[in-house]
Every structure is written in structure tokens, then in C-alpha cells.
Design a binder for these strands. Sequence first.
DNA 1: GTGAAAGCGCTAACAT
DNA 2: ATGTTAGCGCTTTCAC
Lengths: 335, 335
Amino acid sequence: MKVTIKDIARIAEVSTATVSKVINHKDEHISDPTRKKILKIMKEYNYIPNTAARSLVTKKTNTIGLIIPDIRNPFFPELARGVEDRANESEYNVIFCNTDDDEEKEEKCVSMLIEKMVDGIIFTASSKRTGEFRRFKNNKIPIILVDRDLDLKHIKGRIKADNRNGAYEGVKHLITCGYKDILFLSGPYTSYTSMERLKGYKKAFKEYSIKYKEENIIEGTYQSGWGYEIIKKLLRQKRKFDALFCGNDLIAIEAIKALQEDGIKVPHEVGVVGFDDIYMSRFIDPTLTTIKQPIYEMGYKAVQMLIETLQGKVNSYQNILLDTQLMIRNSTLKK
Amino acid sequence: MKVTIKDIARIAEVSTATVSKVINHKDEHISDPTRKKILKIMKEYNYIPNTAARSLVTKKTNTIGLIIPDIRNPFFPELARGVEDRANESEYNVIFCNTDDDEEKEEKCVSMLIEKMVDGIIFTASSKRTGEFRRFKNNKIPIILVDRDLDLKHIKGRIKADNRNGAYEGVKHLITCGYKDILFLSGPYTSYTSMERLKGYKKAFKEYSIKYKEENIIEGTYQSGWGYEIIKKLLRQKRKFDALFCGNDLIAIEAIKALQEDGIKVPHEVGVVGFDDIYMSRFIDPTLTTIKQPIYEMGYKAVQMLIETLQGKVNSYQNILLDTQLMIRNSTLKK
DNA sequence: GTGAAAGCGCTAACAT
DNA sequence: ATGTTAGCGCTTTCAC
């Protein structure tokens, strides 16, 4: 049998109100002996409050939702861990959902999270999404947007890395190394980060008064496999290039693989720069020059913002832009 | 304002009981017009049932807990995705917790999940854990154990890969390739999987009537960094070896890195076999020979088992052992 | 086919 | 310093 607050009250010979007060640490007006007695009995009977009952009255669940495209994409475990850690610090739990960047699944996730009455949502919105969620009509669950940009009434904050400047630094590095024909193996154009990185790419060229070629900008996907495929295709087409600036590390790593299979030497014949700095980028051969994003921090700070919003500490909308960092390793070479 | 079942009932001019019946598809005895009317109004007013209220009476939350050591370990995203996908198919949500294989954090996770009244738990137990959870006394939340072994009253099923046979195949492969001094870079001895893999290692030697050397079995951790460190140390000690059987791919990848930094050629001078077959194992150089585990499937099937248990479909305890597969790539070579 | 009403376990306003 | 009590929004039994 589950032991309830009533049981504890009966055994301690007090009212449920008193027990409730000590459970919730609203016990300034409870005498020391009473408090201790109740605490002792709670421990003895291994009492665990029923959150459903509590939520029903408080309208809080101490649960937050995390919506991401796919936990298998190496970017997201790091983010998720940041989210979890900060959430736990404030006794929040996290429910997570994968959307595969699919609007329908997103809609479903959001529905589920609303039903579960999460207190807030950390959201890496689909690249393609435009407009509001149907289900968001009647409520005001706060959302913190991570790594994406989007307009929704519920959004109480945004946090992302400085993708534009990161890309700028990366491409500048390639240019100063002496690489000439620098392809941009971009993620999908529908993605906010892709577009920012594209701006950075163009900015670098502009700064060095070089005309970039439209055909050197190639739209792809962040799905695994694309980086490999596109290089194979380019090679078949005998496309000329001596450097790759990649939409993320996965693309870069796959591209290097494809290059090496054709006997093309990285970084001597082709220089490669990635984006993200996933753990593995240090272990491939050659080690990957890349733009490091503070991923864990993004998750951590996103929850921080959310919790502050929830506590009403922050009324002001926040928009945090985190710095990236160029990690020069062995997939690029000063010529 | 949130719309409740009462509102719907009032607007539809029926009782809440009737509305409840159609919400829960227990509407065999509801007339078609009434049902349609209610459905229409629910949609129109964008009604979302309050799960807390529902859970309070049904004692079900349609939420399961997932306890893992660290989502950043490349094994777990794959597992988590399998869990999520199967859970969603049956309209379950998943709350996840990272324990870092720390017993105290595990205890805390379990507490949180019990408070949240999860219907069941998918659990990758700490390597070190022995004995019951304090908080488990008064309840009977079913647990499915994944990738580990452990005795707890609540465990309603187990699912794991055949670690022993996998290791056996891996080491056999090294032996038949002609490698002689095969080190086992093991995970922690407290870990069930480590011990199973050790058994496989020994079995392979036995089969070829070779005496394995105790000093060739080296205990380490699954934490990132160890594989690199241990090789550096071994090299400093001038230890002689020509092959590594590694506790997981991470160890293998780091070890290869360390080897290559010292100019040692893989697979020519040292052959390396990993365990897991993480995505990256195909992209390092040389590509990694490894033992593939059906990780996604483990997660998926674990939830399958859990849900069947929850539905009372299965009374019998289940213990599933999944096959591993030797993936021969370029980190080993027939001599 | 439909409804009335009890109650799930808890909190919070108000008494005492 | 402690207790009384009215719900929170829903399901479920039983009656009609």
C-alpha cells in the first residue's frame, strides 16, 4: 500500500495541513517537536508525495520538455546533458522528444508536453518551421529557443552560438592558409544556422576582396551520409576545389573519408574545416580543424534562463549569443 | 483560460462522464451524434486533458523513466532513441536521467522517477551497484534492465547483447589474423559487460590452447580519455604487444590515436578491435574492426517488454540476449 | 445511452 | 502553532 499524506497525519496525530507545510518547507510556524516528529514518521514509512496530486493544485510539475531533432546527432547529447544537469540542480526533470526536424512530429511532441503540463520547453525548432503551433493557443508555457531562430509568442528567450562569426573565422583561416577554391558544404538553407554560417562565409570573402562563386555554395543536409555522398559526386563531376568549409563536423569527417578513399591528401591537396568540435574531431586522421561551439553551456544556460523566467526573476526577454572558437588542428595547413 | 472537461460538458450539454468516455474511447454506449458533437467541441475549443488529474485517479502516467550513465557516451544516444521511438508508438513519454555510474545519483534519479509516478523504468544500472534501492520499498514499479546485470525484486526483464560471445569472436579474429600478444583494454571490473567480455577473451585463448597472461588484462574505465592515457603509459613502459582488444570503441579509437602519435602503424604493427560499432568507427583511419551491438534494438525492445509487462500481457520474466556481429574493417590484418 | 456523485492525494486560504 | 475545508480536473461506479 502506498502511504499518503493522510496516513502520515493520522500517525503523527496532526492534520494533513501541518504535514503539507513541513513537506513544502513552509514550516516557519510549526513547532520544532512537531516538525521532527513528522519528518521522522515520513522517513520511517518511506513517504513519497504524489506529484500528480500536487500538480493538480499547484499547476506546476517541476518538469521541463526538451525538443531536439535527433539525440543521435552528436551535437545533441552534449546539449541534453547541459539541460539535464541544470534542471536537476533545481529539482526539475526533463522529458525529451526527437522530432527528426519534422513539423508533424514537432506538433505531436508539443501536444504531449502540454498534456504533461511541463512548466517550460527547451526547443531546438525544426529548420523549416514557420508559424505558430496549433496547440499553443490556450496556454502560455514559456519556451527557450536553442541554436535556432524563430518567432513564436511563447518564446521567452533565445540562446545560440555566434554562427556567423564562427564561419567567418573558419573561412578566413582557410583563405589565410592560402587555399583558393573553398567550397561551402552547407546544411539545409531552411536552417537558421546554415544561413548564418553562409553570411560568415561571404563576409570572409568580402573582407579579402575575393569574389565567391555561387556554385561553390552547396546545400545539403545535417543527416549522416550526405558529406560522403556529395564529395563522391563532386569527384565524379571532376569539380575543382582545394578546400571545404563544412556545415558541421559530421559532414567534414565524412568528406575527409570520401577524399581519402580517392587518394586525395588532406590537408595538402584539400583543406577541411568543420563546425561544432564534437569529441571525435580530435580522433580522426588528420585531426579536424573546426569551429568549437559551447554546446553543453548552451543547454545549461537555456535551462537557467527558463528557470529564472519561471520564478519571475526575469521579465525581460533575453537573447544570448555565445562565442565560438577556432580550433586549428591538422586538416588545414599554412601553404 | 484553460478549458476543462467541465467546460466541454457544459457546452455540449452532456455530463462530464459522457465526455470522459469519448475522450478515452470507451464510447461503445455513446450515440453517434453525441460523440461527434463532443469531438467537434473538443477540437473547436482545443481541449487538452490534464494528465495530472487523470493520473491521480488512474494511477498511471504514461511516462517511463530512462536511467543511463551519460548520454554523451556514444552508446547511449542510440539506445535512448530506440527507447523514445518505441515509447512514442504507445503514447508514452520518457524522462531521462544521467547517473555517471554514481550510486548516489542513481538513488536520486530513482526517487525522482518514483515521485513522478513513472509507470516503469528502463535502467542501465551502475557497474558498482549492489543491493536494493531504499526508495523501492513501498512500490512495485517494473524495471527492465539493459546492458547490465543485477538482482532487484522489481526487475521484470533483462535485455543485453551477448558480450561474451562477441568478445570471443573478436579475440578469435585477432588470433586467426596471426597477432600474438593481445592485450585486453578492459572497462572496469565492476561492470557486468567487462566481466562477460573478459570471459570471451579467455575462452578464445583456451580454444586455441594458448595461455593468456594475466598482465595482458588491464582494467580501465569507460570514461573518455583512458584509452589514450593507457597506451601512452604502456609505451613509456616499453610494454610489448601487437594487438589490442578494447572494452569499447572509444577506448579503441583513443588507443589508435596514441599509437599513431608514436609512429606505430595500425594494423601492421598493432591490430585493434573495438566493441559497440559506434557511428564514428567507420570514419577514423584506419576504419575500426569492431563488435557491433544492436543498440537501438536493445532500447526499442526494452520498452516493448516494459509495455507488455504494464499491460499484463506477459507474466513470465523475460531475458533477451541479442547477437553481436564481428565487423571486419581495416584496423586488423591477416598476416 | 447518459448522468450523479464520490473520490484520487494534495495545497492553501482561512479559522481557531 | 495547528486544524478545517474547499477544491484542482478527471475517472468510474452505479443508477436511471
